Simulated scan of single mutants.
Amino acid sequence: MRRYLLFWLGLAAFLGACGTEPKDGTEAPSPALWTIAKDGHKAWLFGTVHMLPEDVSWESPAITKAVAQSDLLVLEAAGLENEKRTAAIFEQLGRSPDLPGIAQRVPTERRAALQALMARMGATEQTLAPYESWAAALLLSASAQEDLKLRAGAGVERLLSTRFLEKGKPVIGLETVEGQLGIFDTLPEDAQRALLTQVVEEADSATDQYQAMLAAWLRGDIERIGDTFTAEFGKAPALAHPLLYDRNRNWARQIDALMKRPGTPFIAVGAGHLVGKNSVQAMLVKKGFEVNRVE
């Protein structure tokens, strides 16, 4: 689940200059890209990685062309780049009084691993105790940025936003920061604790997991990404609907409405939303869209 947070969820970016040519001796990048069309209107649909190492080359000629042909960028959430405001919202929603100790919120056999992870990120029982379980999970997950050398500024959304804004093209979000955090804040406590436990369980393997997922993304291997996310949510099924399927359904409704307007949107959301039978594309097909993979 930690790889899921870092690879797929944009909120990890605030808690913590990619080129267009691959490095010598490496395969040219080809992350998956689709066109979606309905009633004569067309858009691009692209699966992203929210945080990347600074030296990763990910942009293919097809993506460059699609971006140039688009006049609107649609992201998962607008406003995440305002780190001060986002952090304030996180603090407001993520803290509650009189919570049990953080160690009491994971199974007994995982408490030693939790202590080791907290020590690695410089946290203590006292610093994490005021945070609800979902918020503590995000904070612990974000600590992996140092190990993986990830930077929000190198993430796909940040670079796309800069390019669109420099051209005077608008950038909008399918969700707000409050909405994204609110999804976590309304999770039942058992689901929150499941999230926290999985972050602890996967802490030691986070680097290898992330690198494998990144490699799959760069080569457009959506089957590998889909298998990984299916396995991840299989361990915590209570998280699948609120964090993935329900959001996909909501986004498909918004995209359907958006496509009734003139113009060509470039829609960029986490790659985990674009795989499997409950993907955004699957929801759009049910609404009469034609979906074709370009790359």
Rank of each mutant, 00 (worst) to 15 (best):
L138I: 12
G226W: 00
Q126W: 05
L258Y: 01
D204S: 14
D221Q: 05
S96V: 06
A113D: 13
N250P: 02
S143E: 03
M118I: 12
A12Q: 13
A152N: 02
L75P: 00
E59V: 14
L72S: 05
S161N: 08
P265V: 09
H41F: 14
V74E: 07
A203M: 03
H241N: 12
E54P: 10
A66N: 02
L11I: 14
W44T: 10
K42Q: 14
E21H: 08
E91V: 10
E290R: 14
W134Y: 08
F46S: 05
A137C: 12
L140S: 08
D246P: 00
Q145F: 10
G272S: 10
R105P: 08
L5P: 01
R253L: 10
L243E: 00
G276L: 00
T64M: 09
K84M: 06
A103M: 11
A28C: 12
E27W: 03
A194S: 13
T20R: 14
P170W: 11
A144F: 04
L160C: 04
L243S: 04
G270C: 03
T127P: 08
I255C: 01
A215H: 06
T26N: 11
Q180Y: 04
L243Q: 06
G47V: 03
W34S: 07
A271G: 03
I63S: 00
M259A: 06
R2P: 06
L214V: 06
S96Q: 15
F90I: 12
A103H: 12
H273D: 01
L128D: 08
L214W: 02
A113P: 07
E81Q: 07
W134Q: 00
E81I: 03
L5M: 12
A257F: 03
T230K: 09
A13L: 01
N82D: 15
L99R: 11
I183G: 06
V199S: 07
L148E: 06
A135N: 04
A136T: 09
K23E: 13
G94F: 08
K169N: 00
I172F: 02
P237T: 09
T124K: 13
F266N: 02
A62L: 14
V56R: 09
E189D: 15
T20S: 10
V200C: 09
A78S: 12
K277P: 02
L284C: 06
D147H: 09
P237Q: 07
E201C: 10
V67W: 07
I225E: 05
L239A: 06
P31N: 13
R3C: 13
T64C: 06
Q281C: 05
G122I: 12
G101A: 15
A129E: 11
W217N: 02
L159E: 13
K84E: 13
R151M: 10
A103Y: 11
G153E: 13
Q192P: 01
T124S: 15
Q69D: 13
Q115F: 14
P188C: 13
T108Y: 10
L284V: 08
F164Q: 08
P265D: 03
V285I: 14
K287A: 13
L218W: 00
V275P: 03
S57I: 10
G276N: 10
L174R: 11
R2Y: 11
Q192G: 14
V177C: 05
T64H: 11
I172K: 07
